[in-house]
């Protein structure tokens, strides 16, 4: 199985929940936002959502996310080591 490494530069992409372009475009729905903090009586603000290439093993390497990211924060590379 060939696997892709999907890396998100969190220094460049600070508030992913305000953009969400990579989430919408990925054909394999690799990306996922998850909440970093939950508080009573409060709706989570955009800053509390963390973006991760959650289902990275499903990445096909089509590079759509790399092309669409306005901040140039996503890197997709094929993994070098061979895996079973």
């Amino acid at each position: 199985m060939s696997l892709m490494d999907v890396k998100i530069d969190h220094e460049k992409c600070k508030v992913p929940a305000a953009c969400r372009k990579c989430l919408a475009i990925c054909p394999q729905a690799v990306f996922k936002l998850h909440l970093g903090k939950v508080e009573k009586y409060k709706l989570a603000p955009d800053e509390e959502w963390h973006l991760e290439a959650w289902y990275w093993t499903r990445c096909s390497g089509c590079m759509e996310c790399v092309k669409i990211c306005p901040l140039d924060a996503i890197r997709v590379k094929k993994r070098k080591e061979a895996v079973a």
């Binding site: 969190h10 909440l35 970093g36 903090k37 939950v38 508080e39 009573k40 009586y41 409060k42 963390h50 991760e52």
Partner: peptide, 13 residues
């Protein structure tokens, strides 16, 4: 069930 009575803080970095 977690109801947000305490803040749930996760720092992925």
């Amino acid at each position: 069930q977690h109801m947000g009575s305490e803040a749930l803080k996760i720092d992925p970095d």
